[in-house]
Design a protein around this nucleic acid. Structure first.
Length: 401
DNA sequence: CGGTAACCTGGGAT
DNA sequence: AATCCCAGGTTAC
């Protein structure tokens, strides 16, 4: 009984040649040679879906760039490529699938096509000039609707880690799944089921370079497999719950804290106002908002109703206008308890799709994107102070209650 | 509760 | 060359 054992531990050696000399352009399909494949246009313009702003920007580590404006990945058992046409519209190519008809449905679902990005962003922009300015340059940054198991495992790998290594770890895990084909020099596998994941021991993961995240994955997989109706179903059932319950449920899994839980909730569980709170989020609130939160310890009730938010911040503006605030407030550290307040502030500011707004703000912070923005956006260059580093941690606390 | 120190690892900066 | 810092954090005191 041979298991699909990945042949490449995350050694520095094997890591080097991540870029094969790409014979990339027309995707090479492997399986299912019969299928009469071709590029098919999607009804999506670039302002609704920008591939470069959606796939390599931190919500999934499973999609690979297989061409200049082309990305490939799997959705369930389907192997798909997406690319931009000349006019910016997106078209897709199904390389391999057990069912052509379900493949497209799965793709549309995965892309959250029922949600109009343009409409959301219009509202965000009206309420926030900074967002409006960023949005002009980063159109089409969409939130995906990923498979929960796949999303969960990816973000278990992400804790206190960097993109490059996260990607290697995710590749390792992915290779346990059924091989679906190869595009542009990359091999693609269906994401492994919990059962297949359970075949790999914590020991093996650790040996493969997962570090302390090995026990997170093993522990979470085991716990999920113990659920009555199966872990995959348990995760899917969270889609019907409200955000606070979802966060609480996810945080029962080892290795899942508030941050990872928010990522999973937003990127796979339809929790559109989940906010992964980190340093960037804190800094994305202006000093007025930061100050308000700091000075209102009572502002800690459950998730705020979505009304009242303008009065809310106007009050804060008054305070700063009267010099009530001290300069140091702006640079205040993000303490764990503030995480919830920050998340609440985001929802107050952007509404029920606040997570979609935060996604753009996060992308704008990525070095790769920052370089493309006008210079006045690149301003806030944080100097590294070797003395005290702002850790900006969120501990697992009472989540949203 | 709130603050802190470990926790794995590889790559880049000093 | 040796060391330090950092990476979208979580956990255990």
């Amino acid at each position: 009984m041979k298991r699909p054992r990945p042949s490449t531990p995350l050694s520095p050696a094997s890591a080097k040649q991540k870029r094969p000399p790409p014979p990339q352009t027309p995707p090479i399909s492997s399986k299912n040679p019969k299928a009469h494949q071709k590029w098919v246009p999607l009804n999506l313009s670039q302002s609704e879906l920008s591939l470069p702003l959606t796939f390599p920007t931190g919500q999934t580590f499973r999609w690979k760039q297989t061409g200049p404006l082309q990305y490939s990945g799997t959705i369930g058992p389907h192997l798909v490529s997406l690319k931009h046409l000349q006019n910016g519209d997106v078209s897709y190519f199904i390389h391999s699938t057990p069912s052509e008809s379900t493949a497209k449905l799965a793709l549309l679902d995965f892309l959250n096509v029922g949600i109009s990005l343009a409409k959301l962003w219009q509202v965000f922009s009206e309420n926030d000039p900074r967002f409006a300015e960023l949005a002009k340059h980063l159109k089409g940054a969409r939130v995906l609707r990923q498979d929960p198991v796949e999303c969960l495992v990816q973000f278990l790998c992400s804790s206190n880690n960097n993109i490059g290594r996260i990607t290697k770890m995710v590749d390792f895990v992915s290779s346990l799944g059924t091989y679906l084909g190869s595009v542009g020099g990359f091999e693609f596998h269906e994401f492994p089921s919990l059962e297949r994941l359970s075949v790999v021991s914590e020991e093996e993961l650790r040996q493969a370079g997962f570090g302390y995240r090995a026990k997170y994955i093993s522990g979470t997989v085991d716990l999920l497999r113990s659920k009555p109706d199966g872990g995959a179903q348990w995760l899917l059932s969270l889609r019907k719950l409200d955000l606070p319950e979802v966060i609480v449920a996810l945080c029962t899994l080892p290795g899942v804290g508030p941050k990872v839980a928010a990522c999973i909730a937003l990127f796979s569980l339809d929790q559109h106002h989940a906010i992964p709170v980190d340093t960037h989020v804190w800094q994305d609130l202006n000093e007025v908002e930061q100050a308000y939160i700091k000075n209102q310890p009572r502002f800690r009730s459950g998730f705020p109703p979505f009304q009242n938010h303008f009065a809310f911040f106007n009050l804060a503006v008054d305070k700063i206008a009267t010099r009530y605030l001290l300069p140091e407030l702006g640079g205040a550290r993000l303490t764990p308890k503030l995480c919830n307040h920050v998340a609440e502030a985001f929802v107050s500011k952007y509404g029920e799709y606040a997570g979609w707004a935060q996604t753009l703000l996060f992308i704008a912070e990525l070095p790769s994107q920052k370089a493309l923005l006008p210079s006045h956006f690149q301003g806030i260059q944080e100097k590294r102070n070797s003395k005290r580093k702002d850790r900006n941690k969120c501990t697992s606390d009472d989540s949203y209650n």
